[in-house]
Simulated scan of single mutants.
Amino acid sequence: MTWADFWALTATLNGKATRANCQRLAEELSRRSVPDIIGFAERHAEALHRLDQEKFGTLPVVDLTARYGSPFPQSADVFLYTRCAVVAAGQAVWESVFFDPAKFAPYTSSEYDGERFLYVPGMAYELATGEEWDRPTRYCVESFSNRDGWPQPQD
């Protein structure tokens, strides 16, 4: 699957990874060939992996504060779901954050929870084949897995 095809499909989310939007995308993707679904999964994982960088992962959650008003850090899960929200927002947003990390920050808000987008490739595969998705992608999506994005190992 080309990047253009990936972003065209992702655009069906209308910028947000809501339950209904992700279900609609999974259904649309499931009507394509299995190689297309796998290709989407690979692009999806790569887009998330490229965002796995210290300059994004160390930004605080925008609508939370820790004790005494200090910034509230993103957990590994929050950082993953935030990256999903950025990708779900579309190609223009995804590309813009690389040039201005401050544009990533608003997506740390619970308003932009992208967790559902994480499961779209598996949902599409299951709809298309009746089988569970059980294949790894070339890129790991887990937080702190992009060694190029994190100069120091994370705990």
Results as ranks from 00 to 15, higher is better:
residue 2 T to W: 06
residue 2 T to C: 03
residue 4 A to N: 13
residue 7 W to D: 01
residue 8 A to G: 08
residue 8 A to K: 15
residue 9 L to D: 02
residue 10 T to R: 04
residue 12 T to M: 11
residue 13 L to I: 06
residue 15 G to I: 09
residue 18 T to K: 08
residue 21 N to S: 11
residue 24 R to E: 08
residue 25 L to R: 01
residue 27 E to M: 04
residue 29 L to I: 12
residue 31 R to S: 11
residue 31 R to E: 14
residue 33 S to N: 01
residue 34 V to P: 01
residue 34 V to I: 13
residue 35 P to W: 06
residue 38 I to C: 05
residue 39 G to A: 09
residue 42 E to C: 03
residue 45 A to M: 00
residue 50 R to K: 08
residue 53 Q to W: 09
residue 54 E to W: 03
residue 56 F to M: 07
residue 57 G to K: 02
residue 57 G to C: 12
residue 58 T to F: 06
residue 58 T to K: 12
residue 60 P to S: 10
residue 60 P to L: 07
residue 63 D to F: 10
residue 66 A to Y: 10
residue 67 R to M: 05
residue 69 G to L: 06
residue 69 G to Q: 07
residue 71 P to Y: 09
residue 71 P to I: 08
residue 73 P to A: 06
residue 74 Q to L: 12
residue 74 Q to G: 10
residue 76 A to S: 13
residue 78 V to Q: 09
residue 80 L to M: 12
residue 81 Y to D: 13
residue 83 R to Q: 02
residue 85 A to L: 07
residue 87 V to G: 11
residue 89 A to W: 04
residue 93 V to L: 09
residue 96 S to M: 07
residue 97 V to R: 08
residue 97 V to N: 12
residue 101 P to T: 06
residue 102 A to D: 15
residue 103 K to V: 01
residue 107 Y to P: 03
residue 108 T to L: 05
residue 109 S to E: 10
residue 109 S to P: 06
residue 109 S to M: 11
residue 109 S to Q: 08
residue 109 S to L: 08
residue 110 S to R: 14
residue 112 Y to W: 15
residue 112 Y to C: 06
residue 113 D to T: 01
residue 115 E to T: 05
residue 116 R to G: 04
residue 116 R to L: 15
residue 118 L to P: 03
residue 118 L to C: 06
residue 120 V to C: 01
residue 121 P to T: 00
residue 123 M to D: 14
residue 123 M to K: 14
residue 124 A to D: 04
residue 126 E to D: 00
residue 130 G to W: 00
residue 131 E to S: 05
residue 132 E to L: 11
residue 132 E to V: 00
residue 133 W to T: 12
residue 135 R to C: 00
residue 136 P to R: 12
residue 136 P to D: 15
residue 137 T to V: 09
residue 137 T to K: 13
residue 139 Y to D: 14
residue 139 Y to R: 13
residue 142 E to M: 11
residue 142 E to D: 12
residue 142 E to H: 13
residue 143 S to C: 15
residue 143 S to Q: 12
residue 143 S to L: 08
residue 145 S to L: 04
residue 146 N to T: 07
residue 148 D to W: 12
residue 148 D to N: 15
residue 151 P to H: 07
residue 151 P to N: 07
residue 152 Q to G: 07
